[in-house]
């Protein structure tokens, strides 16, 4: 009984962690290339959640197909906000980009509220469960976890095997060096931001596949916070570090939730949040550069 609980927990924790990791890669990518901290991160996740909801409830389109749709919308939003706002602020003091991305977040929240209203929503995607032998997992969670890993691997291949990916990597390492190699540094900035936003909006789909309830315009705040902790865990500037940071965070969150639920008289949800952040605080005290040293 205990072993099964543990195994089930690890598996669900890994799936959740993969989704969290995927949901943080965009934040790290944008920070790594542009040194811009996207405080509006969670609002873009929220946009992805609403895209899923609108496609599923409105048109009956599967959340799996909502992933590429959300990615495309994210790319477009990213390019739009890069050229209208971010580009002018790259050389400005950090506070300017913090305020700007914070405002973009509020703008997105209010626009979505105007269109969809502010009540909590959910959707009911019936895809059944799968028996993994040691535990039974809802298929939607399996899809979300596996989808996140696939996207992370695709991103890795894109970065390391394509010409555009190599340009972006070179800009991360030294933008002046990239320039003398003939890289269009301005375009690399714009597309990195767009790619980061695209990944983030797409992660909103994956998160609702894992947790298909509680979709509302202000759901992003909690995810922004988690993403920051995860990003710092994995080393702020590295999307892969972020992915592994997410795995660790998912395991801790999922594990502690189950443990607390066993204790009588304890409200597991609040305590889980508390414990996850406590553990992370301790890790950061011991290894301030992040668990993975920001490689």
């Amino acid at each position: 009984m205990f072993f099964e609980l543990l195994a089930g927990n690890l598996i669900q924790g890994v799936f959740l962690g993969a989704v969290y990791g995927m949901a943080t890669m965009g934040l790290s990518l944008i920070f790594g290339v542009l040194k811009v901290v996207n405080v509006g991160h969670g609002a873009f996740i929220m946009v992805g959640a609403f895209i899923t909801l609108a496609l599923f409830d409105g048109l009956g389109i599967s959340p799996i197909l909502a992933i590429p749709a959300a990615f495309g919308v994210g790319l477009a939003l990213g390019l739009f906000f890069y050229y209208t706002v971010i580009q002018r602020l790259i050389k400005a003091p950090e506070l300017a980009t913090l305020l700007a991305t914070f405002s973009i977040g509020i703008l997105l929240e209010e626009v979505i509220k105007l269109v969809f209203g502010s009540e909590f929503r959910g959707y009911n995607w019936v895809v059944g469960k799968i028996d993994l032998g040691i535990t039974v997992v809802p298929m939607s969670k399996l899809y979300a976890g596996v989808g996140s890993v696939v996207i992370a691997v695709l991103l890795y291949l894109w970065f390391n095997r394509t010409r555009a990916g190599s340009a972006m990597r070179s800009v991360v390492e030294d933008s002046e060096g990239a320039r003398v190699c003939g890289v269009n540094v301005g375009a690399a900035y714009a597309w990195s931001f767009a790619l980061g936003i695209g990944l983030t909006v797409a992660s909103g789909v994956l998160l609702t596949m894992f947790i298909p309830v509680g979709i509302n315009p202000y759901m992003g705040g909690g995810y922004t916070l988690k993403a920051f902790v995860i990003a710092v865990l994995g080393g702020l500037a590295s999307p892969y570090g972020a992915f592994f940071g997410g795995l660790v965070f998912g395991l801790i969150e999922n594990g502690s939730y189950t443990l607390f639920a066993l204790l009588p008289g304890v409200e597991p949800f609040a305590l889980t949040r508390f414990l996850s952040f406590m553990i992370l605080l301790v890790i950061l005290l011991i290894r301030p550069t992040g668990l993975l040293r920001g490689k």
Binding site: R163, S166, S170, E173, D174, G177, A178, C181, G182
Partner: peptide, 18 residues
């Protein structure tokens, strides 16, 4: 202005970016 964490070979390969 090298790419410090890339190898020498990768730095040179980046030079062939055009």
């Amino acid at each position: 202005h090298l790419f410090p964490s890339m190898t020498v070979y990768e730095n040179l390969a980046m030079g062939a970016y055009p």
